[in-house]
Lab assay of single mutants.
Amino acid sequence: MIVFVRFNSSHGFPVEVDSDTSIFQLKEVVAKRQGVPADQLRVIFAGKELRNDWTVQNCDLDQQSIVHIVQRPWRKGQEMNATGGDDPRNAAGGCEREPQSLTRVDLSSSVLPGDSVGLAVILHTDSRKDSPPAGSPAGRSIYNSFYVYCKGPCQRVQPGKLRVQCSTCRQATLTLTQGPSCWDDVLIPNRMSGECQSPHCPGTSAEFFFKCGAHPTSDKETSVALHLIATNSRNITCITCTDVRSPVLVFQCNSRHVICLDCFHLYCVTRLNDRQFVHDPQLGYSLPCVAGCPNSLIKELHHFRILGEEQYNRYQQYGAEECVLQMGGVLCPRPGCGAGLLPEPDQRKVTCEGGNGLGCGFAFCRECKEAYHEGECSAVFEASGTTTQAYRVDERAAEQARWEAASKETIKKTTKPCPRCHVPVEKNGGCMHMKCPQPQCRLEWCWNCGCEWNRVCMGDHWFDV
């Protein structure tokens, strides 16, 4: 396979590697080409510095992935760790964990309700045991953590790749202090920090972006993250068709209702045909949960890209028209025109101005929308079919299609509260000796007794199943 190397943020060049090629071997190839010592090179990928003893497969490097290699003399205490030698983080029983690669970060837990604080980093599902597709590297999971809308060759929703760059020099040479644990960490600028490894760059702020994971991409090709779309790892039924499908869209209502993408497309087109989208002054033209839940309008309007190009163009047109109407304007009634106009409040005669090729020149009556006339309008008909009709959803289907309910059931079956801080902690095999993952707590306690870890627990039921 081919990976592209950008040395000291210059133009990239291809390097041929195998899945079992080590990072140090990659350094040696680059060092020979650039005429520099291999031990002064640092390989940066997806916000993480890659260790010498890791392989291309370990690092989730795919065909035509772009890695950054910078030349920086080692500072005291760094060289041993980078070589894969006596790194205290690798000691058996050590409590410190390697910062998780962005290629394996899962933010789907952050669609849980606000009262489930902490689960994004504490609760991990076991539903990723799908067998890898044919042709994928051994052991590589097909679980997708992110979804994007690819405006490039795909023109559809695709699995996405999370990447990070330095907000100062805009190069992907920043190593994160810690990985993101929720969508806010990724979507809110300057929320996460790190250290830029580019020479002479003092940058410390992280800037995240997404790429389409279905095809090789260049540095400049980015895609918009659709953070309401998630892999259906909890096997929730769709609120409309009641099938279990994946991926799904999880509405931001209190129940976190789930809808499959085909039904979401149908829901949007139906509402669009009836012009029953909601115009929100802050958000724009949007839709609420299909069950009509309060405070559930979709905030990231790129989710409506699921409509496809033709329907999305209609959505944008109707949204612009609705904006004009909300501002007190009118639409030209001549067939084939429909231009938005903003006449004076007491102006009865409205002319669709033909300047700049935008208007048709038609003069019409503001009251009856017919060709302009003197005197009273002959008839004014009330528009028919403008009443909002509820999208029919079966109550039982709505009850079963809740992301929140599956989460709470998982928590109930696989977790116990920490005796000190009461945060839910998952036990997935292993011994009875637990350690609270909350940095402010870190209590060592017994899963069996529910009390602080002691010699009695150690001698009596340390390794009970």
Rank of each mutant, 00 (worst) to 15 (best):
L187F: 06
R42N: 04
T168H: 08
N448H: 07
G385A: 10
F208K: 00
G85N: 12
Q252H: 07
A291L: 08
D185C: 02
A398H: 09
D62L: 08
G354D: 15
T55K: 08
L50D: 01
D262N: 04
G179P: 14
Q440E: 14
L107V: 12
G77S: 12
P199Y: 06
H303A: 03
T388D: 13
V164P: 03
D18Y: 13
R128D: 15
P294K: 07
Q400W: 12
D126R: 07
K427S: 08
D86V: 11
T222S: 09
V380Y: 11
T83E: 14
A31E: 05
A206I: 03
V248H: 01
S145M: 06
C352H: 04
R305K: 12
C451E: 15
T351Y: 08
V244N: 05
A383Y: 12
Q438F: 06
C59D: 01
A320I: 14
L307E: 00
V380C: 08
E395V: 09
P294R: 07
D460C: 05
N295Y: 05
N428C: 12
L123N: 13
F24N: 07
T351G: 04
P137E: 13
A225K: 02
G459R: 15
G152R: 11
P419N: 03
R234G: 06
S198G: 08
K413D: 15
K48Y: 03
W453A: 02
W445H: 05
V224T: 12
G47H: 03
V70N: 02
H373F: 02
D115V: 05
C449M: 00
L261C: 05
H265Y: 14
S108D: 14
P417K: 12
D60V: 06
H279M: 09
V148N: 01
R42T: 12
V148Q: 02
V248P: 00
L341P: 03
R140N: 11
I239V: 10
G292D: 07
F7R: 02
N454R: 13
H279Q: 09
E353L: 06
Y285A: 03
N235K: 13
G319N: 09
T177I: 10
V67P: 00
E321H: 06
M192D: 00
Y315I: 11
F13A: 03
Q400L: 13
H373A: 02
T173M: 06
G47D: 04
A339N: 14
N8S: 03
E409W: 09
S181K: 11
E300M: 05
